[in-house]
Nucleic acid binder design. Structure first.
Length: 465
RNA sequence: UCCUCCUUAGCUCAGUUGGUUAGAGCAUCUGACUGUUAAUCAGAGGGUCGCAAGUUCAAGUCUUGCAGGGGGAGCCA
């Protein structure tokens, strides 16, 4: 049995090659039947559907069949036939079964019946074997591939930015420290602080919160670059939209202004959603049926509309004129709250919204300042259900203005000298944005908790598996 | 981190104003059934009621603390 190439279930389910000999290997979802005939639903993860294996009990060793239980892993050699039953077109008449791995029914946690997502989070090592997580993980893969394909086709270069960083300049949140010092007896300075000059890198280092600053360095040579890698935030965020370890996509484009940036963001998101509909329809259909009846309609809706683009200032006017009562008051100069963003996206416009030109005080130092002296060329893409999916901006390319802003915010110039050098030598107008990969997967799958769209979520108080 | 709700069988949950031996469905096990579709039917086993303390003649039920989880908020992607 080992020497024959196995057939993938995704291919067999589409096959009309009845009578051919096939070999399938996978995990048993259910076995049912009577003392004469058994039906095994076998899944190998190649597709959400299982294939039905028909077993004439008389032809098999009773002890072998006893080991074929929900969760066990088996290989089946048999004949592909047209199904006599109602639920499927093809099935396999089994000739030989080899059990690779048993799964004790008394202790195997996954049942034939549905489980709560909360319970499955506690057994994240086994949840990929469920229909739901199979679907989510296949979609996640397709989106990762689609991202690379999109940027490659557009002439972007995939730039690997560092995971370990010595700069704390992004200001995107609390960071995890990286150290090789003895945690029981670290070298100390006279002032009582740890002496990181004796650490592995000779300075204090952290896990990155963003690859953007380094991506800008790449864009100042290759014109079009993007990063796609893990990102870490040590914030104590306990929400269905935050992870301590997540994946972020950050394109950075020389010679793009804020409008080019918005065009790219919109086209990029639509491409990915179309890619999911084209390549993951079975999985989307399952998720649409089981979790979110409006999922596929919502995805198609995004493709059909053009994103509403307006300035922060205009948004504030709309919110003030809305007559809604807010938990947090709307006022020019304060950041918009989730309730405000939701109103704009879900009630007022009923489609994705791109907000631009925010007050500079509530945005990062590197964003390009407008002539009004008050706002910066930021752009946030807001999506229904999940809120901010993309945050980006045109970058400040003027050396003097950027240095002045850095001083205003008390960012040590010595930490970002290399970043400032790009504005000193051959500076160029440029733009970029960050897409939270898991937030994209949330939107595309219709899942409602970000912990269910990454295989092994890292959140406060949880680094299991 | 804040607000709020939850924690009872392997899973999902019910459990009345505090009162005898804590229930159901599914799962598991045993048996029946010649093609099933979350198979069906019959029977059986399965519980430190999250942990700790308190109130009470009596606590799954009331109080306090702790832990874990859900939802909302903040931080953000």
């Amino acid at each position: 049995m080992e020497h024959t190439r196995r057939n993938k279930i995704v291919d067999l389910l589409k096959s009309k090659d009845f009578g051919s000999e096939v070999l399938v290997k996978g995990w048993v979802r259910t076995k049912r039947g009577n003392k004469n005939i058994n039906f095994i639903a076998l899944n190998d993860g190649s597709v959400i559907h299982s294939i039905q294996v028909v077993v004439e009990v008389a032809n098999f060793d009773e002890n072998t069949l006893k080991l074929v239980t929900t969760g066990s892993c088996i290989a089946v050699k048999g004949t592909l036939v047209e199904s006599m039953g109602q639920g499927q077109h093809v099935e396999i008449q089994a000739k030989a079964i080899e059990v690779y791995g048993t799964a004790d029914n008394e202790t195997y946690p996954l049942q034939k019946k549905g489980h709560s997502l909360e319970f499955l989070r506690e057994i994240a090592h086994l949840r990929p074997r469920t229909n739901t997580f199979g679907a989510v993980l296949r979609i996640r893969h397709a989106m990762a591939y689609g991202i690379h394909k999109y940027f490659n086709d557009q002439g972007f270069n995939y730039l690997h930015t560092p995971i370990i960083t010595g700069s704390d300049a992004e200001g995107a949140g609390a960071m995890f420290r990286v150290t090789a010092l003895d945690d029981k007896n670290p070298p100390m300075l006279p002032d009582g602080h740890v002496d990181y000059s004796q650490d592995f890198f000779g300075k204090e280092t952290k896990l990155t919160v963003s690859g953007q600053l380094e991506a800008e360095l790449g864009a100042m040579a290759l014109s079009l670059v993007y990063t796609f890698g893990p990102t870490f935030r040590a914030e104590n965020s306990n929400t269905p939209r935050h992870l301590a370890e997540f994946w972020m996509v950050e394109p950075e484009m020389a010679f793009y202004d804020i409008h080019d940036n918005m065009d790219l963001a919109e086209d990029f998101l639509k491409y990915l959603i179309q890619y999911a509909l084209d390549h993951c329809y079975d999985d989307l259909e399952f998720l649409n049926k089981m979790y979110d009846n409006e999922l596929i309609d919502r995805l198609k809706g995004v493709l059909e509309c053009s994103f509403e683009r307006l300035s922060y200032t205009e948004a504030v006017k709309i919110l003030k004129a809305s007559g809604q009562s807010w938990e947090f008051p709307v006022d020019w100069g304060t950041d918009l709250q989730a309730e405000h963003e939701r109103y704009l996206v879900e009630k007022h416009f009923g489609k994705p919204v791109i907000l631009t030109d925010y007050p500079k005080e509530i945005k990062a130092f590197y964003m390009k300042q407008n002539e009004d002296g008050k706002t910066v060329r930021a752009m946030d893409v807001l999506f229904p259900k999940i809120g901010e999916i993309i945050g980006g901006s045109q970058r400040e390319e003027n050396f003097d203005i950027l240095v002045k802003r850095i001083h205003e915010l008390n960012i040590p110039e010595k930490d970002v000298w290399w970043y400032l050098d790009t504005r000193k030598f051959g500076t160029a107008p440029h733009s970029g944005f960050g897409l939270g990969f898991e937030r994209l997967i949330l939107f595309v799958t219709g899942m409602s908790n970000i912990r269910d769209v990454i295989p092994f979520p890292r959140t406060p108080k949880n680094a299991e598996f």
